[in-house]
């Protein structure tokens, strides 16, 4: 009677957790939109990780929107294991992450190309131009792309050419792209 939306379901899940600590019931639908931010506690991050990594768990399949703007603290996901995390979330439609907190960028993009076949929206903060031999150029079919390059002293400007990873990606997105946001590049496409 009282469940009228995801917020109500969350209250229900929390109640289940409180009343039956050893028999936690959390509907998978609660994992559809996940946001980890600097305000997220270590416990919240660890809880999410444990939920989708548990043996036989289908929670990862329910994740459609995932945003992670955490700092370097917290789960190993933030620094390591991203490719594995992507494997556990095969139905992602939207991904929003800060790159410096991940494992090697090429490995991450390779997994994204192979596994996230339903991805429609990709937001990357602090993309490092020096890592531009990444498989980003092999992505296809995105509707929304937003990239913020890591700039400032010690970081080179990004040259957007037909041969660059982003250039190849943009050419792949020619028939699907609806929204594009780029910051700090030299356009030479």
């Amino acid at each position: 009677l009282f469940v009228q939306g995801s917020r109500s379901l969350l209250a229900l899940a929390l109640t289940c957790r409180t009343l039956r600590r050893r028999d936690i019931i959390i509907p998978d639908v609660l994992f559809a939109r996940v946001t980890l931010s600097r305000r997220s506690s270590r416990a919240q991050v660890a809880s999410f990780e444990a939920s989708i990594e548990a043996e036989g768990s289908t929670a990862g399949n329910a994740v459609l929107y995932f945003k992670n703007s955490c700092g370097t603290w917290g789960s190993r996901w933030i620094g390591l294991g991203w490719s594995h995390a992507l494997q556990r979330m095969p139905n992602l439609r939207s991904l929003d992450v800060r790159l410096p907190y991940m494992e090697s960028t090429p490995h991450f993009f390779r997994q994204l190309v192979i596994g996230a076949t339903n991805l429609q929206s990709l937001t990357l903060a602090n993309y490092e131009p020096a890592c531009d031999d990444s498989p980003l150029g092999d992505l296809g079919g995105l509707r929304r792309l937003s990239i913020d390059f890591l700039g400032g002293p010690g970081h080179s400007e990004y040259f957007l050419t037909r041969d660059s990873a982003l250039g190849r990606a943009l050419l792949n997105f020619r028939d699907t792209l609806k929204e594009l946001s780029l910051d700090s590049i030299r356009w030479n496409l």
């Binding site: 943009l170 792209l177 929204e179 946001s181 780029l182 700090s184």
Partner: peptide, 14 residues
């Protein structure tokens, strides 16, 4: 990119 309806470019040189 004929379907782009929203474009945001910042600090872009040509």
């Amino acid at each position: 990119w004929p379907h782009v309806t929203k474009l945001h470019l910042k600090n872009v040189s040509i």
